[in-house]
Amino acid sequence: MSTGTITTQKVNFKVFRFNADEDYLPYYEDYSMDVTSEEVVLDILNRIKWDHDGSFSYRRSCRHGICGACAIKVNGRSTLACKESMTTMIEYFGNDLTIEPLSTKRAVKDMIIDKGDFWEKHESVTPYLVTDIDEAPTCENLVLPHDAEKLNEADLCIQCGACHYACPAVEVNEDFFGPAAFAAAYRFESDVRDSDTDRLKAINEERQGVWDCVKCYECAEACPKDINPIEKITKLHQMTFTAGIAKSNVATRHAVGFLHSIKKHGLLDEGGLVLYSEGLGVVKHIPVALKMFKKGKIIMPWNMPKSDNLDEIQKLIKSSSTAKF
């Protein structure tokens, strides 16, 4: 409940409209409204439908930030409409707001999108507990608090799709599972009761798996439940090494290559890293490398700078390393 005074201001909305059954192209409709500081984005969607155009379509259900149905985009920002306050949106973007579905290219009708790719990818990570069930248990199957904490709140995901459709890798690479699927994979991988062996292998595959994450942190920013999917993606990376299923490929060698380089120089040897990661594939980088060399951007191995007190770094690597490849 608000303790402050309720204020009202005029906001101009540009709203994405499209009906796949009738329209050849989408268009935008303008609505101007007085918006109070008490309203959330969903109130605006409701008012457009109830006061302006009954055909305006969007998904909504719980109005309590738990069903995940009403995620849309406001000025390009993934937003759970029932949770996001209009005051925050105005603070972020001013009084001209653009309302769009999570993915305009997947629009079916106005805010409603075909989330098929989201669910397909979700399904690909075996998003459920795989375990031998004792059908006649003699006592409760207890999970200790310490073990429950390992889920790291990944179980709070409501599958709203906010992170998935904020992810640039999902937009470019249609095989990429995306942050929500990875968060789900992590949720079950970190569950002490789970004994699945395929899930980690699936997220370890190139193109679809975690190695294609661009590390932009859009998912961390977009998640309305503060699940921080990229943190789970990082942990999944680590799990592939811990479980010994990380294959030697350009992606894994790229991660491990940093260690080798730091051990040798303290700093990263850029050329050395590309060579170590790519192996023979390094030849495809020659044209760009030549251009860079001409501009004084490539240092010869014998001129590679080293960190001062390199012995300290080497000693720390020896004593603090926790992973094996």
């Binding site: 991660a255 303290g266 990263l268 001062d308 770094i313 690597i317 603090s320 926790t322 992973a323």
Partner: peptide
């Protein structure tokens, strides 16, 4: 001049603790 590479968001994918120490 003593500083090492930060791991560039990749080292922690392999070894989180080492990345923190460095």
């Amino acid at each position: 001049t003593e500083a090492s590479c930060c791991g560039a968001s990749h080292l922690q994918d392999y070894d989180d603790f080492l990345s923190l120490v460095l």
